[in-house]
Nucleic acid binder design. Structure first.
Length: 306
DNA sequence: GACCCCTTTCCTGGTT
DNA sequence: TAACCAGGAAAGGGGT
């Protein structure tokens, strides 16, 4: 059966268009190419923002999220509160500080920030001078992709700041390190856990999430960082895991952008959400529009799990 | 290539 | 009337 979808969105997804848009602050929250929705938006000086020492707390988190996403590391596995600091504080962290704050991926983060410091210092243009404003007020994309080949770049000067990672350090860097059990283990008796138990051992443990971020994780992560998505989704009952879509179509477009699917709509997104009912990742909230609730198999959203 | 999983797409019908 | 909800059916696509 051939389904020719009609593209109802105005989000350009061609390679060309994509190549002119810097990667958003986070792949999971990939920004809608709002230039399509907001024809004119004010420019912004990027001169300072290319240097991490001038970053705000918000931008530090953007960078952190971007780096985790790039390496397909579950954001819920990282103690974000350890990075509740501005760029200046971030830049003053030592290699050991990063390791303590982020565990096994500390070296990766350290290397990343060292590269950015170095790039900014030497005036390398790694940030495209483009600002994007979505229909959701302040949802801005600012952090471009970090270089994947960071470890192969020449390393002028400050070796103390830029220790080379050994091959062992980089082994399986795309494979997330084991997150806390509380964040990954479905309730033993739940259908989800049974489903996992029935899987071959290799697929249970080999890769945490080979397909990348799932929709519910995407939603969860938006909720966990409300400062980054003003007006998209909000908690109705934080403790109970009840949340509500405020800009359903905007969220759908963000999801579509992440999946490189310009025809994503809330209608389709909500269908995918409803499939989570069976797996108890979400629970029904009867009688309330745009309201969902995390179920027993949704992990990482509780405050106590942070 | 088969199979599994997670969506994605389309659809019908109901509700707000 | 529009937007949303519910869920069946089938296909797409990546991983094993």
């Amino acid at each position: 059966m051939v389904r020719q979808t009609s593209c109802v969105m105005s989000v350009p997804t061609s390679a060309n268009a994509e190549s002119h848009v810097p990667a958003p602050w986070s792949a999971p929250y990939s920004c809608v190419d709002a230039s399509a929705m907001v024809p004119a938006f004010p420019g912004r000086s990027w001169a300072q923002e290319t240097q991490p020492q001038f970053w705000s707390k918000f931008q530090v988190w953007e960078w952190l999220q971007q780096t985790l996403d790039m390496h397909q590391i579950d954001a819920a596995s990282i103690p974000f509160h350890n990075f509740d600091m501005d760029g200046q504080q971030l830049c003053s962290m030592s290699f050991q500080d990063f390791t303590q704050a982020a565990g096994p991926i500390g070296p990766l983060l350290f290397q990343s920030i060292a590269d950015l410091k170095w790039s900014g210092q030497y005036g390398i243009e790694i940030f495209a001078p483009l600002d994007i404003k979505t229909e959701v007020n302040e949802f801005q994309c600012s952090i471009p992709p970090l270089r994947e080949d960071f470890n192969t770049w020449p390393c002028p000067g400050d070796e103390q700041l830029r220790p080379r990672m050994s091959p062992q350090d980089l082994v399986d860097i795309k494979t997330p390190f084991p997150p806390p059990a509380a964040l990954t283990s479905p309730t033993p008796s739940s259908p989800e856990s049974k489903r996992l138990q029935n899987r071959p051992q290799t697929t249970q443990h080999k890769k945490h999430n080979p397909r990348g971020t799932h929709l519910w994780e995407f939603i969860r992560d938006i909720l966990l960082h409300p400062d980054r998505n003003p007006g998209l989704i909000k908690w109705e009952d934080r403790a109970a895991g009840v949340f509500r879509f405020l800009k359903s179509e905007a969220v759908a477009q963000l999801w579509g952008k992440k999946k490189n699917n310009s025809s994503m709509t809330y209608e389709k997104l909500s269908r995918a959400m409803r499939y989570y009912y069976k797996r108890e990742i979400l629970e029904r909230v009867d009688g309330r529009r745009l309201v969902y609730k995390f179920g027993r198999n949704a992990q990482g959203w509780k405050e106590t799990e942070k």
